[in-house]
Each structure stands twice: as C-alpha cells, then as structure tokens.
Design a protein around this nucleic acid. Structure first.
Lengths: 110, 110
DNA sequence: AACAATACATAAGTGAGTTATGTATCTAAG
DNA sequence: CTTAGATACATAACTCACTTATGTATTGTT
C-alpha cells in the first residue's frame, strides 16, 4: 500500500480516467477496478470516493443513472462531454507533474 | 505551477534528495535549488519548509551547523547516515507510486 | 530612502483525505 | 439458519500536511 500522502490530489484523476476507460461504472465497481489495476496498492475508501463522485456530478462532469438489481440499488456514473475534457486535462497535469518530479529527484526517465 | 494537491507528501522526499545531491545546504538555498530544478514549477513555501526541516532534524535524519556570514545567520543542514537511508526509501517509494499510477492511468511507460 | 531579495521562524486556517458509523442486501460456511 | 463477509450506498467527525499570514532582521539595488 502506498503512503496515503502521495495519493492526495490523485483521486479525481483516477476516478475520471477509470470512468473514461471503462464506460459507465458504479462506485463500488470503481474501487474494485482501481484495486485491481494497482495490484492492491491503491485502495479507495468510501469516505473519499462518494463525496468526490457527488462533487463531480454537481459540477456537471458526471451524470448518473440508477439501476435496481434485485433489491439492490446501483448508481451508475458516466462522463459528460465536459467530463471528457477534464480527464485529458487532469491526466496531462499528472504527467507534467511526474516529469517535473523526475527532474527534481534526478530520476532516470525511460 | 503544479496543482498544490499533487505536491502533498512529496516535500520530505524532495528536501532529502536535494540535500543528498548537493551536500550541505541552508533552507533558503533549498527553495531556490528546487525552483531552479523544477523550472519554477515547484515553489516551496517557508511555512512548509522550516517545520519540515526541524522535524527531520528532531528525528535524527539531518544535522545542522550554524554559520554567520556578515551579520546574517545561516543554518546548514546535511544528511546523517540514517538520513541517507531515508532518502533511498523515500525515492523508491515515489518511483513505485508513479509506476502504480502509470498502470492505473494507463500511461505509456516506454 | 525605499523596495526587493535574502534568511530565519511560527501561528492560524484550509481542505482533501481517513476513520467511524449507519443502513441494507446478497452469499457462502458451519 | 445464522453468522460473517462481500456488496452497495451515504455522511459526519477528525487529522494533518500543507497554505497563508505575520514577524524579525540583514543585504543589495534603484
């Protein structure tokens, strides 16, 4: 598991990108997908995820559809056109960030 | 300038690594070196730096020597052997983190 | 003289996260 | 069958590394 400090500020980027790559998903599914992609190194907590999803929805980046499976309610999220732009922005931002950190920490890039 | 959120948790790593690469340095010098290495993208604030240095010193990672230039006091910091271990640990941690993020965000790592 | 840069330090405030708690359904084990 | 774990959502209290603000003092520049 990674130091939680480093993860700060990456949650939105992760959520948006995973939604872009996987289409419509519900909250719990996102946590599981990230766990899988990160080989158990990034475990998104519900207390962080749900407020983040609500915020992105309120900002018009995501839209939701509610589906009932048996008696279980699932809230599916997908990107709006605005959300699609934001993904690109956020991912670019992150790539720039690691480039800069590569310089500062003198990491061998490639 | 990078989104300050992404920087969270990287300050200690940056300070330790810059000290390792440059030998003994004083606080203000560290901020300037990081500004330079990051092409003005990472501007360490004094309110973050000095407490961080004091903490690392209290933990035995850094030692200090005070020097007086004219009437100006400078506090030089350098790594202790323990500090040297910590640099490696922190830098490895960061590298692992960006590898994981590379997987999650499906970035081209070539 | 006045302002910017150098050089240190600490206190108050912020905000994205963690931790804790609550509700409820589904499924596997003993 | 009932108990525990996984599934699925949600929100409130708290934490803590940072930003912002403030303070002191020297040095260099206009």
């Amino acid at each position: 598991m990674h130091s939680p400090e480093l993860l700060k500020g990456t949650l939105q980027t992760i959520v948006l990108k995973v939604l872009k790559d996987n289409g419509r998903m519900y909250g719990y599914e996102i946590t599981q997908r990230v766990k899988e992609l990160s080989d158990d190194r990034i475990l998104i907590t519900e207390g962080a995820l749900y407020p983040a999803l609500h915020k992105l929805e309120a900002e018009g980046m995501l839209r939701t559809e509610t589906e009932t499976i048996g008696k279980r309610v699932r809230k599916y999220y997908s990107l709006t056109p605005q959300g699609r732009s934001l993904v690109k922005e956020r991912v670019n931002e992150f790539v720039e960030f690691i480039k800069t950190m590569g310089n500062v920490l003198q990491l061998q890039i490639k």
